[in-house]
Design a protein around this nucleic acid. Structure first.
Lengths: 329, 329
DNA sequence: CCCTTTATATCAACCGGTTGATACAAAACC
DNA sequence: GGTTTTGTATCAACCGGTTGATATAAAGGG
């Protein structure tokens, strides 16, 4: 690969002059400029962005840490994050933490060593202290890390209420909230926990008992979840409505119903959360609480860029959710 | 952020000595070594990997270009690619091309400027010529770019045959192959086209006509696909089996059957391709041709690393597929 | 005790760029 | 024509590291 020196030599100029052409700095004659461009094209010269980054102390890279890209929600989120990052001239470094604490620590260190300009945390199992001396712009997703780290989230409380209200309005008398361990009460700071709270509030105010079923956090194997859901349905045959904390869990619930030959929506109604592709792909199509993933991604990137540019940002960025009624209610 | 100079000053040593400790080069006394480590810990020093990369001409970054991370297949592939890359000390730079030619060109240039050590092409709509003067290790996925660029793929021909044979064995008399435009005959070099060929060969040898339905390449909107599938089923009521070129398409077919109240598997049988999460999430669970995504990802990373290290690699790497029979056949 | 090893630390050049200060020439002004 | 202004190109230092060559001191050998 040719470098500036090669270009300069071939053009009969000094390195700095060529660099000046590249950066549009100082006075350069048209003749010189054209010659430089010509030679660059001839040699197929590409500036070394690493060298530039080193000098400028700006890599234009953003580290993205999520539990796993194979989850549809994070896949869609990441798609849009990459889209908006690219628009602003940033590249995305992908990290799957699997919600593993030590992996998260390692990735944060790695990203810092690699001079990313900012980190987007979509997985956050670490304590605040780890972030204090990080000295790097961060945007958190769906979890409050600390008061001075901006967070982007959907209105989970409202989402929980919407889902509960829909089930109630459709005549459910015994709805249950089904969630993964990670989304549960033990992780208070996890904003997704508010889905549960919204659901509880609404169900209680309708004079019903807010039932819950917690699936094993690690048991992402469908079989285990499936067994747990089926067992729960058999123990509680009165259940006639489900609010699942994600569309993927809702799909598992639907499958359990299929196996138990419970008809949807006549015998049991189901509401998911997220509105990812799978929601409109399964049969019947899933009623769900829609998070505006694209807008949220846009916001995340904007917050990242603003912070990098040293501007003020708002700390809590909550996006409205909307109810999407389809075939399961 | 402290740098080597700061560490050296605080430890009362020269920069180079400290660098030697970091790199385990030359003779260093235990005392010196310990002192350096202590000071580094005290200052929370992290070496600047960009500077190291600049000198070593090795960024330890791999560029990944795929159509879109939001497709479940690429999401799972990417999950494992990141996993194995991380194991070998490489980071992944994510690029969604949307199968857009100019995007692909831009991304390739960007990756080159950013000094990635190699590129994994999961999207490849470009001509060979673009890759010729790239002068960078490449591994292609599911598409032969040129003779000297290694490719990793599943045995698509065999997969097509397996699927067709399953449908035939289960008694289908009028099976149809449904695929997206991009996977079709016009892209001969696309190995996924071989799924069709395998299917055709098997169906013909059973004395039946190999029917086909091509969905709009761009119409990734479910609605359009759905309408197309439903229309096809209404025009061809004799259809009693479907081989879909991906699990996502199979899900769309299942949904069309749900709307048309065609019972699966009694009235119509369906086989997908990939065996991604969604296959075991939909109801009934999808029979499909399984690609060994994890092993393929491992192989891709191995090919990448070998090439970076200047070793010889095999050009064609075909992985066996297996039939996974579930509820749709 | 001198000479060779062996251990330890430093000098200086380099990776591929950027940029403030500066030299030099040509054009513009009075 | 001398002086200022403006245009053009170069010098040298820097970003944060790495490394071959070299200097210096301590230990070992005869």
């Amino acid at each position: 690969m040719p470098n500036l020196k090669d270009v300069a030599k071939k053009a009969g100029l000094s390195i700095n002059t060529v660099s000046r052409v590249l950066n549009n700095r100082g006075y350069i004659s048209e003749k010189t400029r054209e010659k430089v461009y010509r030679v660059m094209k001839e040699m197929n010269y590409q500036p070394n962005e690493m060298a530039r980054a080193l000098f400028r102390k700006r890599s234009n890279m953003i580290g993205l840490i999520i539990p796993t890209i194979s989850h549809p929600f994070f896949a869609e989120l990441t798609y849009y994050l990459e889209y908006y990052a690219d628009h602003k001239g940033y590249k995305l470094l992908l990290c799957n933490s699997n919600r593993n604490v030590s992996k998260e620590v390692e990735y944060i260190e790695m990203l810092k060593k690699n001079q990313v300009d900012a980190i987007i945390m979509g997985s956050a199992v670490l304590d605040v202290q780890h972030y204090l001396h990080l000295d790097l712009p961060i945007v958190s997703f769906d979890r409050v890390i600390s008061e001075d780290i901006p967070v982007v989230t959907s209105n989970n409380l409202e989402g929980g209420k919407l889902a509960a209200r829909l089930l109630i309005n459709k005549g459910c008398l015994h709805p249950v909230f089904i969630f993964r361990g990670i989304d549960g009460p033990q992780h208070r700071s996890m904003l997704a926990g508010q889905r549960r709270q919204g659901y509880e509030a609404e169900v209680e105010s309708a004079g019903m008992e807010p039932l819950q079923l917690q699936l094993d956090a690690e048991g992402s194997k469908h079989i285990e979840n499936n067994a747990a859901i089926i067992a729960y349905f058999q123990e509680h045959p009165e259940i006639d409505g489900v609010f699942a904390s994600s569309d993927v869990i809702a799909a598992e619930v639907i499958h359990a119903c299929y196996l138990l030959k419970k008809d949807i929506p006549s015998e049991i109604k189901i509401v998911g959360y997220d509105d990812v592709q799978i929601a409109s792909l399964i049969s019947p199509r899933l009623s769900t609480v829609r998070q505006p993933i694209q807008e949220m991604s846009d916001s995340i990137i904007q917050l990242v860029v603003k912070q990098i540019e040293g501007k003020e940002v708002s700390m809590v960025n909550t996006f409205p959710v909307t109810l999407v009624e389809r075939g399961t209610t």
